[in-house]
Each structure stands twice: as structure tokens, then as C-alpha cells.
């Protein structure tokens, strides 16, 4: 088996909903390996998005341990966490979350602007390469509101890929797409996984996506089952 990129050990997440304490995750232990094309599956409210957010370092568990490439990340200061999010993780959102005042090209470029060691020329090449990988070379200078839903999700995937992350996290990436576009997006992600070895972890309850992943991690009532 390939090396583990991220490992979760006995992760719990509680939060308050009004005055009610909700246990979103209860003792989740999990490891994602390099090159995997995996999905967190479960019903609405099962805790899969919470788990994805915790793996993506955009949310903190109440307790437990998260090890990213051998480093326990929970004790790290926010600056270091931000750097890990920028360089080692890519995030694809259900609603694409593109910056509306930036073109597709500029949206993809956003994460690289934080990486000072990358020259302008290399940055341009990587942005063009990421857009080519998702088949949007001809749409690079269009603004999000002139792109279709599928094209927007491709831009979001290109943005997640451009930093060459260890792991791409995609939260319900096909939920806002029609059937044809969903197939195209899944094919594209699978192609990136097979060609470039990009590791994907989805959260989904889309049967079409679930049928294509190599590993399904079922979440129920905040536990991996």
C-alpha cells in the first residue's frame, strides 16, 4: 500500500446548535493514501462534510489527532495551518466559490500568489497547465458569471490542482451539476487521478460519483462504519 497522506485518530467534533450540543463526529479514525480516489458517503447530516472540513484544516476537531504527511497539525499556529492549506491541500466546493471579479485564469492563480518562491513565468505556466487539464484553455479570460455550472466547477478544480497539492478535497462537487456535466467532471477527476496520481477525497451522496470511486468510506451518525 502507498504512503498515508493524512491520518485521523479518534477524532471527535461537537458543536452547539442553539443550546443543544451536537456530536457531529464520534471517534473517527481514518487514513487516506497517496493516489486514492475515495469518497466519504452517507446521508445528509451524517457528518461527512464536517469530516472533510477537518481533513482540509478549515475546521478544528474538538479532540483527536490529525497527522498530515507525518506531522501532527492540530498544535500548529494559524499561519502554519494556512500554509499547509495553501501548499498541500486543494479544496473544491459544492457551490464552486469562485471570486466573481476575477477571470477563470485569475481565480486559478489565486493560491499561487501566496507562494513567493514561484516566478511569474512559472506561475503562468502552471495556471495555463491547470486550465488545460480541466479543458478550459479557451475560457481562461472569462468571468465566472459567463461560464456554465460545469465550467465553473472545472475552474474550481483547476484552482485546487494548481498548487500541486498532496490531496484534493471535494465537497459534493457534483451536487449542483446536471447529469451530463456530472459525468464529465467525474471523468475529468478520474483522468487526473490516473494520469497525474492526484489523490481525491470526495464527500458525496451522488450515486454516479459513488459508483466510480475506488474506496467508499461510509459515515453514519458521525462514525465510520
Amino acid at each position: 500500500m502507498s504512503a498515508g497522506i493524512v491520518r485521523l485518530e479518534d477524532v471527535h467534533k461537537e458543536y452547539l446548535l442553539g443550546t443543544t450540543r451536537v456530536n457531529a463526529l464520534t471517534g473517527v479514525s481514518l487514513e487516506i493514501h497517496a493516489g486514492e480516489f475515495a469518497a466519504l458517503v452517507g446521508t445528509s447530516g451524517s457528518g461527512k462534510s464536517t469530516l472533510l472540513n477537518i481533513v482540509g484544516l478549515v475546521d478544528r476537531p474538538t479532540r483527536g489527532r490529525i497527522v498530515l504527511e507525518g506531522e501532527d497539525v492540530l498544535g500548529l499556529e494559524e499561519k502554519k495551518l494556512a500554509s499547509l492549506r495553501n501548499r498541500k491541500l486543494g479544496y473544491v466546493f459544492q457551490t464552486f466559490n469562485l471570486i466573481p471579479v476575477f477571470t477563470a485564469h485569475e481565480n486559478v492563480e489565486v493560491p499561487l500568489l501566496l507562494q513567493k518562491e514561484i516566478s511569474r513565468q512559472e506561475r503562468e505556466e502552471r495556471v495555463r497547465g491547470a486550465l488545460a487539464d480541466v479543458g478550459l484553455t479557451d475560457h481562461a479570460h472569462k468571468f465566472p458569471d459567463t461560464l456554465s455550472g460545469g465550467q465553473r466547477q472545472r475552474v474550481a478544480i483547476a484552482r485546487a490542482l494548481v498548487s500541486r497539492p498532496k490531496l484534493v478535497l471535494a465537497d459534493e462537487p457534483t451536487a449542483n451539476l446536471d447529469s451530463t456535466t456530472t459525468h464529465q467532471i467525474i471523468d475529468m477527476c478520474l483522468g487526473l487521478n490516473e494520469r497525474h496520481g492526484v489523490t481525491f477525497l470526495f464527500s458525496t451522496h451522488d450515486e454516479k460519483l459513488m459508483s466510480r470511486v475506488s474506496r467508499r468510506i461510509r459515515i453514519q451518525d458521525g462514525r465510520v462504519v
Binding site: 482540509g56 494559524e78 492549506r85 495553501n86 501548499r87 479544496y91 466559490n97 466573481p100 489565486v110 501566496l114
Partner: peptide, 11 residues
Amino acid sequence: ETGTLRAVGYM
């Protein structure tokens, strides 16, 4: 948007 930028590493 702010959340997205934070998620991709902005402080």
C-alpha cells in the same frame, strides 16, 4: 469569498 480565500491559505 472570504472563507474561500482563507481555505486556500490566505491569512
